[in-house]
Design a protein around this nucleic acid. Sequence first.
RNA 1: GCCCCCGUAGCCCAAUCGGUAGAGGCAGGCCCCUUAAAAGGGUCAGAGUGUCGGUUCGAAUCCGAUCGGGGGCACCA
Length: 952
Amino acid sequence: MSTEAAAESGTQDAVPAHRYTAALAGRIESRWQDHWEDKGTFQAPNPSGSLADPGAAAGREKLFVQDMFPYPSGAGLHVGHPLGFIGTDVFARFHRMNGRNVLHTMGFDAFGLPAEQYAVQTGQHPRKTTEANIETYLRQIRRLGLGHDDRRRISTIDPGYYKWTQWIFLQIYNSWFDARVNKARPIAELEAEFAAGERATADGRAWAELSASDRQRELNSFRLAYLSEAPVNWCPGLGTVLANEEVTADGRSERGNFPVFRRNLRQWMMRITAYSDRLVDDLDRLDWPDKVKAMQRNWIGRSQGARVSFAAGEHAIEVFTTRPDTLFGATYMVLAPEHPLVDALVPDAWPSDVDSRWTSGAATPAEAIATYRRAASMKSELERQENKDKTGVFVGAYAENPVNGAKIPVFVADYVLSGYGTGAIMAVPGQDTRDWDFAEAFGLPIIRTVRPSDGFEGKAFTGDGPAINSGFLDGMAVAEAKPRMIAWLEERGVGEGTVQYKLRDWLFSRQRYWGEPFPIVYGADGVPRALPESMLPIELPEVDDYSPKTFDPEDAQSEPFAPLGRATDWVEVELDLGEGKQTYRRDINTMPNWAGSCWYQLRYIDPYNTETLCDPGAEQYWIGKDPAKHGANDPGGVDLYIGGVEHAVLHLLYSRFWQKVLFDLGHVSSEEPFRKLFNQGYVQAYAYTDSRGSYVPAEEVVERDGKYFLGDQEVNREYGKMGKSLKNVVTPDEMCDNYGADTFRLYEMSMGPLELSRPWATKDVVGAQRFLQRLWRNLVDEESGELRVTDTSPDEDTLRALHKAISGVREDYQNMRNNTAAAKLIELNNHVTKRFSAEAGTPRQVAEAMVLMLAPLCPHVAEELWSRLGSTESLAHGPFPVAEERYLVEDSVEYPIQVNGKVRSRVVVPADAGVDQVKAAALAEEKIVAALAGGEPRKVIVVPGRLVNVVL
RNA sequence: GCCCCCGUAGCCCAAUCGGUAGAGGCAGGCCCCUUAAAAGGGUCAGAGUGUCGGUUCGAAUCCGAUCGGGGGCACCA
């Protein structure tokens, strides 16, 4: 039974009227939430632009703290969602109390598949359900007391917001990447180069000879946003195409887990690959978890190597290799089954004396290859990955190793991927495990070109060592042999050093309704034209049916159909785009939901600007480079960005790319969107299944002797996510009802370090509740509600405890160790309880400091106590206590004395005692004298302030 | 298969530079308050740091193996 219920059921003598109960907490919390809202307590002034209050911003150090903004799901919040939000709030509040101008707010990532799917399920317009969900979400997070500047809330679905998303698209569309200066430039500058004849057109004609459409085509091939007719990921089950980043390793959609097929379709792409080097290199300038950096490096997949050309009859097979030093060991070649040269190379008949393993028993090479290709195409991605047995078939032709003229057979095998490098490899079994496996299976020669280290007993040797069997490379280490070979190849024109990337261009269009329309129309010639900025935003048209056309998930041959195509009145539009009034057709794709989240940090800064996406002065102030504070190499960006690790290569890569384009074009001064990134852990939960394997309500399960029961039925415990279907959801609303938001916040923060995932345990919440009750009781009389604070000065012990806590708590907050900060507050409160609960009250000095230190974690109860202590001002802007050094140093120190590393005794000496004095005191201690038995110690180690170790 | 992170009381977690293994919470024992109850108050106990080995005067901390858990990548040439 809750205390609230008890109080109402007539047994109120049992609960003192002024105890800090959930009911009282609830009243305090809503009162302070109203107060903060009325007073605009968390509004952060800008130096310029909208929301400007230059006087208030000037002279204050700023701090921009950002949460990965949520998608407003219809399911509402569970206790896991606010973990990071509370973490940022505590951090923001601590710094606000220390005088910083803190920008902290939260908006909504409200476009996208899930919103649309939810709308389809509920039969309502996505805007309606999404906006309703946002309302629910705001109500839920308001109860948590997050100190957001609510003037800065944005939502990606607002036309005032997506106008700028579209504007950025136009910027990207209207730029090209100039590799000579490694940055984006306006397309107009490229056009000028063409017009001036400084740059040759693709087919060599002069610019003046090209028709308008041809010129557009030429320019389009350079744009950073471009239409491409290329193999893309088509997901019939979702009815849309997907970016590579949205497809899992086993070839299914990340959302919905539907099969994904490669299809040639005309789609919008973003030339993110132009930024590969900068995206990799600038990771070194970021304060991000190594794990996330590693994932991005891995995804971009930069590898240094060489392109080598192998002659094969009148053809040349181009390969990419990271090991040009092993070229002498290339004993065969492999083409991907889809490689375009395969058909050209295949002879009519097998060469004589061909190995029977190479032909798969087929009568001719063409037949063997046709059979092999068919078999390969039948294999799913998953099968391909699970079964790593090497298969392949001989093409029937030979190529020539350029380095020694050796005649080497050419194979087709599916272990070579058409999508990476050139889709062809030189196989060096001696130094490559995969090639070794293939060579063994097909009886191909193996030549070692690196001498394995002593005692090496494996097959392929991939380590470093001196080159052998390699002519002019012999004796060189790998690092030396590589450039030597590249130089040799380049001299002869049969190869060159090159860099290869795994990163592909970003597929940017979706065949969905609920997203940003493209600001693009097509003329009668089918060539896309950008709409002028003045026409933005291009608003989503109303349609009768906004559901996407989805298909049988396995139907690879289905065709995407974009819902916007149904808005026929909208699609056809008459405009004058400088070519006279003409009829155009609008692009009916929408942008992926990553678009809106690519740049929202900029809009938080200046949410109301109608002239530009973000005021330059405000941008510079909040996320500009700050070499004085962060070093000469500082790229700028949000000071702290907290979110889950699941966005490591999606959102975080895309937004870095956009930021860099905007930087190149001069729209922002910062090169990176997020200077420091932090991944919070997840709140996980136990779930229970009965004997039939179905989930039972977790809250009704009890533990007995290490087993779990629902009634008398034993159930099985699982650990993992919190979710409706697992029947283990606990909501923040329940926590606020039963304990209060402050207790909930405190509990979430004291469960462990923020970066750690941890199991939810409702029964543990009471610990946080008890602490706040005790602290309250130390300051407020539970019976009368009178303040229990005295003006007496605290004793020495109390002052020491207080200042030790101040110093520790301050440091903990600074480093986001909210769990240990909470522990130190509890420790201090325990001291206060012991010392003053039997007295008239707590000394004011201690009471005030304790309340202020509690404020970042539990702001409502802290504000309440602070005002009861007599302040008329909110404590949101401080002061935050500062420790006095003199209470941190002890008068005397107790040294443990070890004998051979084991503690044998202790001695107390003055804190300012020198090493010799400590040593003398230790050696004079009676147990040590006994241990020495008149002899001399071999060595005495004194660690000042720590211990003494006597070595016998 | 490769790479990364983590193993400390029954549970969640602390422990600056290697320096007395314990700050805090839950659960547990005992006592007080109470007609009774507890989400009240007090108090007590509890592990030698997954395992093995090494470095050191001294190891939870550093190094090497090994086991267990979590995550990422995965025929990327």
